[in-house]
Design a protein around this nucleic acid. Structure first.
Lengths: 337, 337
DNA sequence: CCGACCCAGCTTATCGTTTAGCTGATCGTG
DNA sequence: CACGATCAGCTAAACGATAAGCTGGGTCGG
């Protein structure tokens, strides 16, 4: 691999001149500039960002930690973040935590060693986990997504899960349903807990009592939701409507209903969290709460840029809450009592 | 940020000793080792991989370029690659080319500057594109995925698209269908071209003529497939079966059929390329050709490790072809003439 | 006509590691 | 007891870039 010295030698100039022409950081006479560019081309020289980073202390790398890229919500988020990063000249280091705090902390350490300029994290642990790992002195700007976990010093971009669940559940109630079930997410992350709370409060507001037998843990997983859904209909008084707390669990539930021979919306009405292209290809098309993922991703990156620009100066920690929209399709029917 | 010097000073040893204990690369007496570790802990020292990489010429970074992470096929692939990389101590630099050769070449340049140890690429260009960009001297080990584009010196891992399409189409023919349509991918990438060729040859083998009006370009995109599908049924003699060349286009086609009021499999039989969790949640469940993505991802990483281990020595270029499986579900019906 | 200033381009210290080579001290042995 | 071998730990030279500061010839004002 050619170095700046090789280029300098070939062009008959000093390395400083090469650096200046390559980075356009100081005036270089047209003649020299041309010679340098010629040398660069003929050697196929590509400056080493690792040497550059060492010297100037900036890597143009941003670490991104998500629990699971396979979850379409995160896929979409990664997608918009990648675009934003590329536009700003940053490259993403993609890491999957697999919902495992220990692994996540290991990744955080690695990213610290890589000297990434910033970290975007969907936390799968609680504050105490991170504190125990001695990550308090972690210097890189941090932006949290999806889950609102009070962190040392970071912005957070999330969706108002409580309000979303409230609205989704109320929609079912407005259709006349009284026996409502939910397939809930993991209760130890904020998204799961908030969505369940919204469901319960919607029931409460409508003067309905919450029946614990109609609340099933799906842990945000397709397989768990499949089992949970079958379970729900094995009881003497099955629900007439279900609120499903994410897209993966929707797939599980729909499979279960098909295997049970139950038709939606005739036998059961459904509202789910998250919208995705293929939700409109289900029959019936599923009514959902759509998260504004693109806007959220852009907000995340803006927050990151703001922190990056602050250059180490203390900055207030913002919490940006986005409101999901109800997208009415065909999966809810009016229940005439 | 604490450096190795700070640690050395605090522990009262030389930097060489710190390096030796941190990397376990030479004997250090227990007493010193303990002192060093104590100093590391109290300073929250994290070695800088950028300095390390500069010195030893290895970054433990692997560049991954895919056209679009949002395409579930690539999502899944990224997922298994990320796991493999993490297990081997590598970190992935994720980049999206958006099917744009110019952008892809820019990314390749960036990765070269980052001095990644290797590159995994789903090429969206042809050999001449890369040659024109002067990437011939690109030194990092290269493994190509999905598309078989003759490249300078690289392994390729792909699925046998021709055989897959042959089998999928033959399956429809075996069900008695004679008017077969296809919604094809982009013909300028090998996957698109090979899949179309397989479709046509299956027709030929069965003694059926190919009707160009039943061949529609979907360009691997949902929206294009939606339009293509509607188009197909606007003709006087619509097909009785469709072979759809990827998952995104399947979603588009299914939406179009629903909007047209056509039922599958009663009005139209379908076989699609790619299997995904939610394909079993469609009604009817879709019959597909399943690509062994996990196995392919693992093969990619193995090939990469082999090249990484070769350390610059020339190595033969392998082409690893995987055979997809037909997964029969409910989207094809027997046509009684 | 001379000193101050300017400016292109060079020299060199520096970033935070690794590692080859060196230095004494310790040890075993003839 | 002396000599070489062994070995823990140190010194210092890279790695490839950047940028502060220097040099020396040219310009300009007084």
């Amino acid at each position: 691999m050619a170095t700046i010295k090789d280029v300098a030698r070939l062009a008959g100039v000093s390395t400083a001149t090469v650096s200046a022409t390559v980075n356009d950081t100081a005036y270089v006479s047209p003649a020299l500039k041309a010679r340098v560019q010629q040398a660069v081309r003929s050697l196929g020289y590509a400056p080493s960002t690792v040497a550059r980073s060492l010297k100037i202390g900036v890597t143009k790398l941003i670490g991104l930690i998500v629990p699971d890229i396979t979850n379409p919500f995160f896929t979409e988020l990664v997608h918009v973040l990648e675009i934003a990063a590329q536009k700003q000249g940053y490259t993403l280091l993609l890491c999957a935590s697999d919902e495992d705090v220990a692994r996540e902390i290991g990744i955080l350490r690695t990213l610290q060693m890589q000297r990434v300029d910033g970290v975007i994290l969907a936390p799968s642990g609680t504050l105490s986990d991170y504190r125990a790992a001695g990550l308090a002195s972690y210097a890189a700007p941090l932006v949290l997504i999806d889950r609102t976990e009070p962190f040392f010093d970071a912005d957070t971009v999330a969706v108002d899960n409580y309000a979303a669940s409230l609205e989704a559940t109320s929609h079912l109630i407005a259709h006349g349903h009284r026996r409502l079930a939910t397939i809930a997410g993991s209760s130890h992350v904020s998204t799961g807990a908030d969505r369940l709370r919204g469901f319960k409060d919607a029931l409460g507001r409508a003067g309905l009592s919450v029946d614990e037998r109609l609340i099933r843990a799906g842990n945000f997983r397709q397989s768990d939701a499949y089992a949970a859904c079958k379970d729900l209909f094995a009881q003497p008084e099955p629900p007439t409507a279900i609120y499903i707390a994410n897209n993966l669990m929707l797939v599980g539930a729909v499979c279960a209903l098909a295997d049970l021979g139950l038709a939606c919306p005739d036998d059961i009405s459904i509202v789910a969290m998250d919208d995705l292209p293929w939700m409109a290809a289900f029959s019936p098309k599923i009514t959902v709460m759509r998260q504004p993922i693109r806007a959220m991703g852009e907000a995340v990156f803006e927050a990151m840029l703001r922190r990056l620009g602050a250059g180490g100066r203390k900055i207030e920690s913002n919490l940006l809450m986005f409101k999901p929209d109800l997208v009415v399709r065909e999966s809810c029917r009016d229940l005439v009592a």
